[in-house]
Design a protein around this nucleic acid. Structure first.
Lengths: 124, 124
DNA sequence: ACAATATATGAATATATGTGCATATAAAAA
DNA sequence: TTTTTATATGCACATATATTCATATATTGT
């Protein structure tokens, strides 16, 4: 196994143990540019305890901003800011009824993702 | 300016539109303490472009640290730091072969989660 | 019209965290 | 043993971001 070739021009990794065959195969499967960034941005929204608590609550029932504040014992602007983030990524949606705005999960796909995560940590 | 209404005792949310029936029902379904924190910590690991790139790469093939550096064009300590995070949460596992340490996804569940995320952003 | 209520938003701050550098550790080779 | 290679780790720094306060906007009621 003589996979020991010199790396090209602007080397990031000066180590020489690279398996060029594997790396090149995987490289050719690279997702379109920006895809992995959008993927991490998506998961990032589940990676904050405030937001994931909001999502868990909304997976149980549609609720207004004020309900979420009371349930999570958080200040209203904090909840609103996070709801805005979640809405911009189409993770939650809302509807207005007079002065009250009700939020809910945008689709059942989000609920399944939450359940998958819970299943994983249960396996600890 | 007009006089401001004083906040009642230790209320978190001084708004009065709370739907107490809904809130109490959802409150009773609250996960065990710490569960939502662990859930967000778990998702947080997918919420960084470096880590999610590593996970995507490992979903294609087992690779050593150096392979990942070359593929992602990143410095070795950065990759090692993130692999440590991923391993502590049992998202990846590794095996040693001489001087080389090979990393791979810990189980197929992780691969499915990645695919779910990709499906979601594809729907945008 | 005006006041009250429910939510949204801008700016500032504090905390969290990803990365780089230097260096330590572990294994193989000489 | 000593050297070389592959990976791990402690620390410092810079960036990102969650929260708060103050305030703006939108809707209803008087």
């Amino acid at each position: 196994m003589t996979e020991k070739k010199t790396i090209k021009s602007n080397d990031i990794c000066e180590i020489k143990c690279i398996h060029h065959d594997i790396v090149s195969v995987v490289q050719n499967k690279l997702p379109a540019p920006g895809t992995l960034d959008r993927l991490s941005d998506f998961f990032k929204l589940f990676g904050d305890s405030t937001r994931v608590s909001i999502l868990w609550a909304l997976s149980e029932s549609e609720m207004c901003v004020c309900d979420l504040c009371a349930l999570l014992r958080m200040k209203q602007p904090a909840v609103s800011h996070q709801l805005k983030n979640l809405k911009q990524s189409r993770i939650v949606k809302n509807r207005r009824d007079g002065k009250v705005i009700y939020y809910s999960l945008d689709d059942d796909h989000i609920r399944k993702l939450l359940e998958s995560g819970i299943d994983h940590i249960k396996g600890n």
